[in-house]
Write a protein that binds this DNA or RNA. Structure first.
Lengths: 219, 219
DNA sequence: CCCCGCTGTCACCAATCGGTGAGTAGCGGG
DNA sequence: CCCGCTACTCACCGATTGGTGACAGCGGGG
């Protein structure tokens, strides 16, 4: 909770002095972006503002206006940064599933997405932000996130085609909705509709139920 | 959307005058509660505060402190009010489903819940609030909401038992999670995971997918 | 060498927030 | 009729918000 994480000028010089910041615009920009992401991930969008970001980044808010054009630009930068999410989340064994059925694939994807979201506080906060507000800021961020998600799904799916007679888009959307809400509810309140979501055993139950549902449709 | 609902002093007297408020504590209390619910439903929890509620109720915020003990008490009152939600949402034909299978029942329940939430902005906002914050305020409200939901489900279910070999609690929680997130995403951004959620045709697609998933598990 | 521009800091602005204490206005009972 | 209780309003508090203009200090190019 205490500041730290801001101390990017931990030069080995005599400690404790006023410690003038080095003049390095690139580093400052990165520090601001990191502060924004960290703040959003840890505190949520409620107290996400110019002052808070500047405080956490350890610089003056004026720099945020100068370098990012205000909070909007900063949010946009965060959105752009989400592109890396895909790169980081593609397991290396993605190619190892080329002879699975669509059902196998979707089950696997669902569980992977569940885990990925469970371990990504920033993504969770953005998700919560999306369903809570409908400002321009959020819309941009939302677009970036959903694009990243779509790209991820695309990469993972490979060239497997869904079975006929099923509106795969809709079914998958419902499954993804379930995953997202489970993760959000679990992170926020530790439960969802009477199902506890705290221990890993709880999550296994949820995962099993999720598998059953997916299998029930895709076989 | 405009204020109204607040206009409890629409006495037939000459309109436009300063229109002194009648001294009626009960009416004022009700006006405050209504203002709070309306504000929460229409604006969301972001700008939900003492000042905003007082402004909308057309009275001094001091009265909120006096009558409800501050925002916390007011939120609690909203929570208590959610008990009525159940009463209002029990269709009269609830008894007409006594010989359905569990699958029929859950399908019906899922669709009913979907519609109920789609038409209840207040419930939606509370839901969004729940997954966005974890303060004491929200926790109380969340508890009231989930209790209301549980009661509703209970009333609707009647005495039908779930099939064996299935973790009905978990499956149902996942289904409910899907419904809730679909509604939230639809209301906020008009889409979810590539599925548009604007027209009633869109919602039919989602409902169909939901039915498929439920049927896949419960037959 | 000096000066200009870029980086970073500080002081200040109006607006709003939650919260409180003091004071006003009207109704009802003696 | 008047007095007192109660519903209600107003004025003010400190803190924090987003936002801006002016200034300081270092460094590189003329």
């Amino acid at each position: 909770m205490l500041n730290e994480a801001v101390n990017l000028d931990s030069s080995p010089g005599a400690g404790g002095e006023p410690e003038r910041r080095v003049r390095d615009r690139g580093a400052t920009e990165r520090a601001i972006l990191a502060a924004a992401k960290g703040l959003l991930a840890e505190e949520g969008f409620q107290n996400f503002g110019i002052n808070a970001v500047a405080r956490r980044a350890g610089c003056d808010k004026q720099l945020i206006y100068r370098y990012y054009g205000g909070l909007d630009g900063l949010v946009e930068a965060i959105g752009a940064d989400l592109g890396t999410w895909v790169r980081d989340r593609i397991p290396e064994d993605a190619g190892g599933m080329f002879l699975l059925t669509y059902g196998d694939l979707m089950e696997r994807l669902a569980l992977l997405l569940l885990d990925a979201l469970r371990n990504d506080p920033l993504m969770r906060r953005i998700l919560a932000w999306e369903v809570s507000e409908n400002t321009e800021q959020v819309r941009r961020l939302s677009e970036a996130r959903s694009k990243a998600l779509a790209l991820w799904l695309d990469r993972m799916r490979g060239s497997l085609a869904p079975p006929k007679g099923v509106d795969a888009t809709a079914v998958n959307a419902v499954v993804i909705a379930a995953i997202q809400h489970l993760v959000l509810a679990g992170a926020a309140g530790g439960q969802c509709a009477g199902l506890s979501l705290k221990t890993s055993k709880d999550w296994e139950k949820a995962a099993t139920a999720l598998k059953r549902l997916v299998r029930g449709v895709y076989g």
